[in-house]
Design a protein around this nucleic acid. Structure first.
Lengths: 355, 355
DNA sequence: CTCACCATTTACAACGATGTAAGGTCGCTG
DNA sequence: CAGCGACCTTACATCGTTGTAAATGGTGAG
């Protein structure tokens, strides 16, 4: 039997299978795709031949012929960040269950250049793209004509692409209001970028929500309590927290824009002997797995990560079926999860004061 | 000018570009690939035409013709786990710099079935595979004939594939010896699986290293101190730690097989009021970013994650150039990073005792 | 016994890019 | 002025699969 094996060097094609089964290549194709009637005996012969030759259809050829690759792209800022990793994990899992492969692109490394890469070189090998930009939302939108179908993860106000998002502004308002309710009065914020460019982007919306909550509570917004982070990593957040402490202002709560940022902040606070939640309250955003396992566990905005992935893939699939359908926006419901990092009802943080 | 735009529905092909530039398709191809001399005026005309039509070469067609996709697969257990995410991040970044796209596969969901997926359906769309299995190392090896070139991340003793790894056994020995040096005598271990199947796999090796260190220190290995985790997640680790506490044995150190496991363990310890490092020492493995930012920061085994990715991609590239070259194993140097979770030299953990 | 009709199966072309080898063009040498 | 290279450019076939349309073979009705 060994002598019958095909050479490892090159795989068997439908032609080979056809020859062995004494049918035409097209019949083999019919057996593989099930797209046409094939009599039982013929099907048997073909299937035997396929097994014998260890036949695997060549997806490049199939793609060339019928235009779909079965691969979708997922572009996100930085896989090493907890939320990106979680999202990627869910998308990969859901996509695989649907028979799709997932190609990953990272956009944080070189925001502008990287984008070009996504848009051009690879376009022909992905059927669609799930895009989770942090900064370049606007510029991406402009290029949407050159892209395969895109589902945007984020809240840019536009109707050029399908979108999936949580209501960042409302959520930020809620969580800020929550710390106010737990007695905080001098609330610092970590993560927002306030420059014009980011006006519409996620971080901008979260900042707006924070400011709205302050206003609603009759609290003054002190710019010295607002720290912009160039990088939303743990280390970047730790640096931002150091910066806040260096400003020598007092505060009794820190609202952050992602759990990862909160992790960095928590580390610095504890290192400085500032207790959470006794002295200062702390909140995150996203409810990644680790958020429930810090000490103390983190109050955060939670939403179903799997729903997020499912919604994005649903929208993408729908668009692939019908490119001219109306674009849709899908909101993923969120809820505040109060854990120990914001203390208990009725308690009040002592606050941190310089010196 | 607008009237000259091609329809968005279908992209321009070389034929279109050729027609517009009044040359043959092959000349366009020559301009694109640079594989043959093209006179300057002709090149100009072709490049103009390409710009005008927003031409992007169809990778499926190119692949069909010349056999390479420019995509590599990366298969790892679970993107939501810190180390996997870090590794994926590095591989994606390095691969992109080299002009390769990365397709992600997760193997944890359905170890056996998933494998089939990797090996068959997608084989024709990836040039090679970087594989980081947790459990199925042996079974994967057996199938290596049906796979595209594979670089294995892990220490299976074999010569069928190229390999990249850190010396798990030595590292586990070192870190266990380290906690012994810091005064621990009853050292629990979290993560190992001891059943036959995993004999050669990473977790088995780390367990061996742990046991060797105990023996070398003249300490008895108490099976009650060994906890097997079905899942290497934070939640799984927390459950494992609860299990250890439920066994009501005393211990003064916990050695874990990944940082993620240590995070779960740390959470439960603190929750129970067991202080790290005053009562119990704790160690991780991998030195993911968060390890330096827990409270207290985690003593762990560090190695250069980027080197890991570079080594894997180097080996893969070399094999793609020459499929019959000898398989190579590349060791990534590691070192122990002593942070506060194992206390300071000269101190001794008080230990935890039931009740 | 013939013929229409159905179910299967087949031949052919096409998807888009590129290697091969043959075809042109030009200038230069003898 | 014939003849020869050097250099560009082109025609053609090919990669493996699948849609289309046509061919095949067998069945049952007339």
């Amino acid at each position: 039997m060994l002598a019958d094996m095909p050479p490892r060097s090159s795989r068997a094609t439908m032609k080979d299978v056809a020859a062995l089964a004494r049918v035409s290549p097209k019949t083999v194709s019919n057996v593989v795709t099930g797209s046409a009637q094939v009599s039982e005996p013929t099907r048997q012969r073909v299937e035997d031949a396929m097994r014998q030759l260890d036949f695997v259809p060549n997806l490049s050829a199939r793609t060339l012929r019928n235009g779909r690759t079965g691969i979708i792209g997922v572009a996100l800022p930085d896989l090493a960040t907890a939320f990106s990793a979680t999202l990627a994990h869910e998308v990969v899992d859901v996509a695989h269950r649907r028979g799709l492969a997932v190609q990953i692109e990272e956009t944080a490394a070189e925001p502008e250049r990287e984008y070009e890469l996504v848009s051009r070189a690879r376009t022909h090998l992905i059927d669609g793209l799930i895009l989770n930009p942090v900064r370049l939302e606007d510029s991406v939108i402009e290029q949407v004509d050159h892209l395969p179908p895109v589902v945007l993860i984020g809240e840019v106000e536009q109707h050029l692409t399908d979108r999936v998002f949580v209501e960042s502004r409302a959520a930020a308002r809620e969580i800020t209001t929550h710390v106010v309710g737990r007695g905080a009065r001098r609330i610092a914020v970590l993560g927002g970028a306030t420059d014009g460019r980011d006006g519409k982007a996620t971080s901008g919306l979260r900042l707006q929500g924070y400011l709205e909550a302050l206003r609603a509570a009759g609290l003054e917004a002190d710019p010295r309590l607002q720290i912009q982070l160039p990088e939303w990593t743990i280390a970047g957040a730790a640096a931002g927290m150091e910066e806040l402490l260096a400003r020598e202002v007092s505060f009794d709560a820190v609202v952050t824009f992602t759990d990862t940022i909160a992790f960095g902040a928590l580390h610095v606070l504890r290192r400085r002997g500032i207790r959470v939640p006794e002295d200062v309250l702390l909140t995150g955003f996203d409810d990644v797995e680790h958020a429930a396992f810090t000490n103390p566990p983190l109050t955060t905005i939670a939403f179903d990560h799997r729903d997020y992935a499912v919604a994005a893939l649903d929208l993408l699939a729908a668009r692939l079926d019908d490119r001219r359908r109306e674009t849709t926006a899908r909101t993923i419901p969120h809820r505040l999860i109060a854990r120990e990092s914001t203390g208990r009802p009725g308690t009040t943080p002592r606050g941190h004061r310089p010196d």
